[in-house]
């Protein structure tokens, strides 16, 4: 459970920082009556905060999967599926997609359409590339119903892909809404929310990739030896 506990420690850090700014040491039964002056900076707008909370939940989901993965490393037989080089191209596409959406969220003019097209096409390319990796692995004998190490690859990449797919649906909806309105920028910059979501999924993918490549094994072994 090292992975999820590390993730939760991070969340606890953020929560602790936020709580420290809420006047938890105050004594509301003694304070002078009246609305308090606003001493704290404004929070992010609701939709942005909502997206951030959603990303935290999704992060928790993948951290749990990571924990389940790490927990079973000691089980036998445990052999990570050797990933084809295509995985690096896919990762590049996702990075590009994330960057494109970032630029789209900053661009109010004609460039926005272009960046949106680039972002969507590269995201679809990422998904197709992942499907191609599945095919390659299956042909190489690493089937879904084989050893758990291979099954994990399909499960983790599949769930991540589903989240990208959901993001694409949301992006399409936002795109449609923006094309139907004359406003150059919406009140809560919905493309910015999509970009935030994409960045989150990119970070999650990079961490998952490290796990699937076995890069974190030594670090995890160290943590486990410290615990036991």
């Amino acid at each position: 459970m090292t992975v999820i506990l590390t993730f939760l420690a991070m969340i606890a850090g953020i929560a602790g920082w936020w709580l420290s700014r809420q006047g938890l040491m105050s004594k509301p039964w003694l304070e002078s009556v009246g609305p308090l002056p606003q001493t704290e900076p404004s929070h992010p707008p609701p939709y942005r905060l909502g997206t951030a909370v959603l990303l935290a939940v999704i992060g928790g989901l993948f951290a749990m999967l990571g924990s389940a993965f790490v927990m079973q490393i000691d089980e036998t037989p445990w052999q990570l599926a050797p990933l084809p080089n295509l995985v690096w191209l896919n990762t590049g596409l996702l990075v590009l997609s994330s960057l494109a959406l970032h630029f789209a969220s900053r661009d109010d003019g004609q460039g926005r359409q272009i960046w949106l097209i680039v972002g969507s096409v590269t995201a679809v390319g990422f998904l197709l590339g992942q499907l191609q990796i599945w095919t390659t692995l299956t042909q190489n004998g690493y089937e879904l119903s084989g050893a758990p190490a291979a099954s994990f690859f399909y499960l983790i990449t599949g769930l991540h892909g589903l989240h990208i797919l959901g993001g694409l649906v949301a992006l399409g909806w936002v795109w449609l809404r923006l094309s139907q309105t004359d406003e150059r920028t919406d009140r809560e910059a919905p493309i910015g929310l999509c970009a935030l979501y994409w960045h989150g999924l990119l970070v999650i993918w990079l961490l998952l990739l490290a796990l699937l490549l076995g890069l974190g094994n030594e670090f995890l072994a160290l943590c486990r030896s410290a615990l036991t």
Partner: peptide, 12 residues
Amino acid sequence: LQARTRGMTMMR
């Protein structure tokens, strides 16, 4: 977090 009315601090 976001929709508390004015004066409603977390500690109220």
